[in-house]
Design a protein around this nucleic acid. Sequence first.
DNA 1: TGACTATAAATGAACGTTCATTTATTTATG
DNA 2: CATAAATAAATGAACGTTCATTTATAGTCA
Lengths: 216, 216
Amino acid sequence: MRTRDPKKEQAIRDTALDTIVRHGFRGLSMQKLAKDVGVSPATIYIYFEDREDLILSLWREESRRMAEATLVGFDPSMSFAEGLRVQWKNRARWCIDHPREAHFLEQIRHSPLHAHDEPGKGRDFIEAMRVFVRGAIERGELVRVPVEVYWSVAFAPLYQLVKFHMHGRGLTPTPRFVLDEKLMNQTLELVVKALTPAAALTKTAAKHHAHKKVYS
Amino acid sequence: MRTRDPKKEQAIRDTALDTIVRHGFRGLSMQKLAKDVGVSPATIYIYFEDREDLILSLWREESRRMAEATLVGFDPSMSFAEGLRVQWKNRARWCIDHPREAHFLEQIRHSPLHAHDEPGKGRDFIEAMRVFVRGAIERGELVRVPVEVYWSVAFAPLYQLVKFHMHGRGLTPTPRFVLDEKLMNQTLELVVKALTPAAALTKTAAKHHAHKKVYS
DNA sequence: TGACTATAAATGAACGTTCATTTATTTATG
DNA sequence: CATAAATAAATGAACGTTCATTTATAGTCA
């Protein structure tokens, strides 16, 4: 018996994602997709149930990959500043290295398909985050706020910077906006300051001051 | 001669926006739209050039309204903390009061149509912001950072909170997440702390300390 | 090894439907 | 009565999906 060709399925996935990113969900036609991949329309229906299943399948795969990439080298027991930095770097790196996939996920997040979000999909991810936040609060490294407030302050600024980068421009038309390490660290520093309790802040300031004294 | 019916145009606009929010751009069919509004398909083409013109027209109108609402009571010469608070309140209020329009704008922002963004559309808005930021920096109320860094830290957290609110849930499935004044102020406080220079921060802390003493 | 067979992959053409838009005509009104 | 709004009906193209058929190959047995 004949076996399925994994390369063919991957080609369908790649081309579909590319088309969606470039022309929106509306631009993804099964017949055009088949033509672009170089297969018969019917072939697509061997690998996917229908158009929606194809898109949702792309969503599942790319979500998984992004979550995985974001947690590389991360450990919920890390110090707050260190753990946050790891996640920022991972996320920024992934978005910059996989702009198409990042754009696809952003697009699906604001589409009606988002309602098909299964509970318990990113559960591991969220659970790791919860442990991380709880520990940091107990150690006095993180202000005691609702998790949504934490999330908004801790990550939304990064996502906005990434959006500027991917869109190619910030608030001024020129020059082209490029998210580099310096900008990211500058922003991360502000965010850490926002989320660090006053007590720990003065301590850190004192430390910095001491360092400055030593080296001056 | 017969005159155009402004109510008819508005009905087309309302129904189109509603359909897009509920079923995505793919769900907006000119024939269905005509049926829903109760007019002939051809009638729509009297008021709008084609499908794209209809959508772009919605975009222009809603963008204008949101920008307008965001600047109510705002003056670029305000103190940093005060000016930022006005904008946060305005924006949150508008998004909560106009969830459909807010969702529509988010949706179009992540669609390929976004490429049709005309330069010089929100120019007044951005210019007012630039004056505001420059003044705050000169007065020592705001850290000296690139405008994109400022924007990311100052507004992205609010937008994330609003997203949680509109989506109906935060990071935990239950209970339903509701953005209230307390949560907003709590977050705004963190953001202001992030963007306030160290020098001004200690001054403010001293002031707060003094107040506490007076009333204790 | 080499022919046979069972089986699933793969196909091109076609299905009925819906799409955005147009045309020819009627209707309402300054 | 002139003019533009409004319409019903129709246009060809494109849509997602299916069907009848062909093609390739893993397993079997000589």
